[in-house]
Amino acid sequence: MSATTSTNYLVGVFEDDDVLMNAVRKVREQGVKIYECFTPFPIHGMEDAMGIKRSRLPRAAFMFGATGTTFAITMITLMMGFDWPMNIGGKPFAAPPVYIPVTFELTVLFAALGMVGTFLVVSGLGPGSNKLVLDPRFSDDKFIMAIDLGSNKNLDPAKITELLKSLGASEVNTKEVSE
């Protein structure tokens, strides 16, 4: 076991999402810190069970959207009202009703792209990114619970293994990942 360059994980493999969620609750009750769970699909209620805070991406989306609105209104006002005013159909040069469609579209565009960009950056996703996959079957039909032994030094790995098995894990493996 090399001290700083690698991490040891206990990888519990579950067959069912409800079993995993129940196991997560029980394991945390026992004071075991869970590193992460890797699942083929999002499990409703899992964030609560694991104690993950609700994502703040909606706020990011709102801010990006507001930026889009401001950008659109400013752009149209400057172009139509000041830089090159044109009399079109006898309407005022910069008539607010005319703004509605383009302002709406740019709001949506900014909000969507900004939020998705934030998501990719925050989650470390992107072309070429290779996030830790402890058991490739997560993307098929297995529900993986990973426990970082380094952050559970006070607990006996054998006991945790036993606990996971008793909670329904079909297999429990140890995996060493070098950084």
Binding site: C37, T39, P42, M50, I52, R54, P127, K131, V133, F138
Partner: peptide, 16 residues
């Protein structure tokens, strides 16, 4: 994009 199905990512993914 290096997806690994972690719960944190799924949480954000669902919000997105």
């Amino acid at each position: 994009f290096g997806w690994n199905g972690s719960q944190k990512d799924w949480g954000r993914y669902e919000a997105v």
